[in-house]
Amino acid sequence: MINVIIIVLGILMIASAFMAIYMRSLLSSIIAAGVISLLASIIYLLLAAPDVAMMEAAIGSGLTTVVFLYALSKVKNSGEDNHG
């Protein structure tokens, strides 16, 4: 049961990582990175490491997203569009 969950989530994580690289708008890449961190947190939990999972949830999904968004709003004048 645990193995099935890990394999499915890992495949979804790899697909999301490719999308984070090849997406055209930066905001979509940030959201894809958030998805990667979400799935990584569940996989850490399934591998019996709850403290690492907690850190991954707090840093990867919360702090990194906010810091990236702050940086993106600083460089927003370079002609990047919000949509897409």
Partner: peptide, 20 residues
């Protein structure tokens, strides 16, 4: 302790969605 992870996760992801 796994339930604590779920609680932290709910809190942090709510803040992330509000930030976006």
């Amino acid at each position: 302790i796994y339930l604590d992870v779920a609680m932290v996760y709910a809190l942090i992801s709510f803040i992330g969605v509000i930030a976006i």
